[in-house]
Design a protein around this nucleic acid. Structure first.
Lengths: 115, 115
DNA sequence: GACATCACTAACCATGAGGTTAATTATTAA
DNA sequence: TTAATAATTAACCTCATGGTTAGTGATGTC
């Protein structure tokens, strides 16, 4: 029930991996491109990518132009599952305390529009 | 920018803490009640609660009937912020999926930076 | 074919996080 | 006021995780 959410949260637990997700949020990127974005070594980034891959947060494929290069792309399903889990937790909460429901929704909406 | 999301994800990274959140999803609970729900020691649970407290996911207050007991309650703001972050990531993905599916391999697409 | 390049795995090391038991604080009960 | 209870902090141990450098496999380039 929570197992893929579990893997997703574990994957997003690390700040470097969160940053990778944010980079991939803009567009797919080559592994080397991601390595260049951090001050850590290439193998370190590579292992973060493996965690993200195995948790299903990203996909990987070789580039058409140069098969040595690997393109990483964000995959929405797992993030959607996490979102659903969050909605569930929040909805239970709002059911419990109906008076605050409006406030919670309002807060959420504000945060979205802020960025 | 991501800092509270950061703390929230770190807090939810641990399976025990996720389970605590799910228990609190139903109703506020006493610390001892939460301890009883796990096979680990009371201090271990206590520290998980501290992490959740510091990340803002839960609040704590003494019980009215017995001030030794502490009531833990879920707080929606941080989870809402995390939800907003997820929405943001996903919306970027869906906006740009079509365009990049076609050209990502051949073209180095230049992006408008929204930050 | 020889060599460079991209990204990965392998092997190793250090730190942090989660677990334990023992001690501490605050409150209630006798 | 003394003892018991609820929960926490303190001190300690172990192991998972993230970092490193070195080596490997595959692909592109000369």
């Amino acid at each position: 029930m929570v197992s893929d959410v579990d893997a997703t949260l574990t994957a997003l637990a690390d700040p470097t991996r969160r940053r990778i997700v944010e980079l991939l949020r803009e567009r797919p990127r080559r592994a080397g491109e991601l390595v260049a974005a951090f001050d850590i070594s290439a193998p370190a980034v590579s292992r973060h990518l493996r965690v993200l891959r195995h948790s299903g947060v990203v996909t990987e494929r070789p580039a058409d132009t140069d098969a040595r290069q690997r393109i990483y792309e964000l995959r929405p399903d797992r993030l959607a599952a996490l979102g659903a889990w969050l909605d569930q937790v929040q909805s239970f909460w709002t059911d419990q305390l109906g008076a605050f429901k409006a406030h919670a929704e309002k807060t959420r909406a504000e945060r979205v529009s802020e960025e």
